[in-house]
């Protein structure tokens, strides 16, 4: 059964194929779609989504879920915006502080999940309400940011040819994606995450540090959510406590479309990148095509999501049958 042996990678190939097809068709149909500018913008526009997806990939690989992502993002945007704008705190202080809070928040949820064996769905649902609530306590309304440091960062760009450049946020996405990929695929910690999601009981009996690994993935997700929030303040130039409602679901969808098994243990960072880019490409197509409204993004994502979980189910049945 040589075919089945590599079938784990099949969802990844399938998503890559979908991305390629989507991009090719769009390039043929819309003038100016096939350009470095569109590609650069894919990374800039989806930096928040992508960074959060890196964190979520760890959580899902470990067999968990994190619903607090959107709320933590919103909290971070309003927290940094308020500090920088209303209290004149330097971004060099405000941003690390925001990241530290996000990380601690994730660690706290991870601790509850690990120590008291609580279901991650409920713990992070609680975390979601909590973070969202605190965001609104900080400010009921959007706070715009005008700050010299912010302007400098926004001016920054790595030129790509004559007409396009890679923004700071896009760079942040790429850097953290690579860091995530290295951590997931090239370290003991990464292997432990896969083992934990593949079979927690076995992982424990194999003497792996199950508890520390479990808490760490939520800490990573908390950090990534906060970073996604920071990136969002640069991208939008403001903080808003109502930002990112339903954002966690876009993140989960991107990760799962990227071939990561929702039950854990199988997946790749490359897949997550592909999932995020599919999301972004559909959005770009909608922008190019004036006739379609943004509801079609949801419809396309919904369709793809169902398609991919069906594919995964088929493959896991298949491997189970082989066994």
């Amino acid at each position: 059964m040589k075919f089945s042996t590599r079938s784990q990678n099949l969802p990844l190939y399938a998503t890559m194929l979908v991305l390629l097809a989507l991009f090719s068709v769009a390039s043929l149909r819309y003038e100016g779609f096939f350009s470095t500018r569109v590609v650069a913008n894919l990374f800039s526009d989806n930096a928040s989504l992508g960074i959060a997806a890196v964190g979520m990939t760890f959580v899902i690989l470990a067999g968990g879920i994190d619903l607090s992502v959107g709320a933590v993002l919103a909290f971070t945007t309003i927290f940094t915006a308020t500090l920088v704008q209303n209290h004149n705190v330097s971004p060099f202080v405000a941003l690390p502080l925001a990241l530290a809070i996000g990380t601690s928040f994730g660690t706290g949820m991870g601790f509850l999940i690990q120590r008291y064996e609580l279901p991650p769905f409920l713990v992070t649902l609680g975390g979601m309400f909590f973070a969202r609530g605190v965001a609104f306590v900080i400010s009921q309304e959007s706070v715009g940011i005008t700050n010299a440091t912010y302007d400098k960062v926004l001016e920054f760009g790595v030129p790509l040819g004559a007409e396009a450049s890679l923004s700071a946020t896009a760079l942040a996405f790429i850097v953290f994606l690579i860091a995530g990929a290295v951590l997931a695929h090239f370290t003991r910690f990464g292997r432990n995450v896969f083992a934990l999601g593949g079979n927690e009981n076995s992982a424990r009996l194999m003497g792996l540090p199950v508890g520390a690994t479990k808490i760490s993935v939520y800490a990573i997700s908390g950090f990534c959510s906060a970073l996604a929030g920071v990136v969002s303040t640069f991208y939008k130039g403001s903080g808003n406590p109502a930002d990112g409602v339903g954002f966690e679901l876009d993140v989960i969808a991107s990760v799962v479309i990227g071939g990561t098994l929702l039950t854990g243990g199988v997946g790749t960072m490359a897949g997550t990148l592909t999932g995020v880019l599919i999301f972004g490409t559909i959005q770009t197509v909608l922008n190019f095509d004036g006739r379609l409204n943004s509801s079609w993004l949801r419809i396309a994502m919904g369709g793809l999501l169902l398609l991919f979980i069906l594919l995964q189910r088929f493959l896991s049945r298949h491997t189970a049958a082989v066994r």
Partner: peptide
């Protein structure tokens, strides 16, 4: 110990299963 229901991780590779938690690393990388 080798248990009756093999306590390994079916989704990981054979090599990973044999060395999980004890993989040789260099500068923290596998």
């Amino acid at each position: 110990t080798v248990y009756q229901e093999v306590n390994l991780v079916p989704t990981l590779s054979i090599a990973d299963n044999i060395l999980l938690g004890r993989q040789p690393t260099r500068f923290g990388f596998l």
